[in-house]
């Protein structure tokens, strides 16, 4: 009786292993799910939250930021430094310094949401690597944008 149960269990166990093996072998004939980065890249969704970037004013090419500092005040990790001044003859301030400490940033996106003029947006840059942290400690977001203060 005991032996009969034992043999039954062995046979049952052997078939359970075969069923599992069938799944494993089935995978041999499927396409790999891996995408070979960096030769190929996975599609990036529209709402991808990368690091923040400053948008330019369409007319002037200057940064849209009015230096209200609400992003800096609302940042949970306090990683935004922003100052601004009024260009001559203008009514509103324009940012002359906007730095992001990316080493602290947690990519939560509260600054983008809070901005009253929609000056911030998420960058689509995700492959960021460097040999030194100093490259990210003070990222100048105004780089590449025009500035009313450059000539002065």
């Amino acid at each position: 009786m005991m032996d009969c149960c034992y043999i039954k269990e062995v046979v049952k166990g052997f078939f359970s292993l075969c069923t599992g093996m069938r799944v494993t072998m089935g995978n041999v004939f499927t396409r790999p799910a891996t995408i070979q980065w960096p030769r190929k890249a996975a599609p990036l969704p529209d709402r991808f939250r990368g690091h923040i970037m400053m948008l330019a004013n369409d007319k002037t090419g200057f940064p849209k930021c009015i230096a209200c500092t609400s992003c800096a005040r609302n940042c949970p990790s306090r990683c935004i430094t922003v100052t601004g001044k009024k260009p001559e003859g203008a009514k509103k301030k324009v940012a002359d310094r906007f730095e992001l400490d990316f080493t602290k940033c947690s990519l939560c996106g509260l600054c983008v949401e809070i901005c009253p003029v929609g000056a911030l947006d998420f960058s689509r840059d995700y492959a960021m690597a460097s040999y030194t942290r100093n490259d990210f400690a003070a990222m100048d977001l105004l780089q590449g944008l025009g500035s009313p203060f450059k000539d002065a």
Binding site: N27, A33, P45, G109
Partner: peptide, 29 residues
């Protein structure tokens, strides 16, 4: 080891779906 790869293949699709609406793959917020 096989189950791990099986599970992650399916999990990847969920992460893609969630990334599309939240913008992030792990810390959705």
């Amino acid at each position: 080891f096989t189950p791990f790869l099986q599970a992650l293949t399916d999990r990847e699709q969920i992460l893609d779906l969630l990334e599309e609406i939240t913008g992030s793959r792990l810390t959705y917020c």
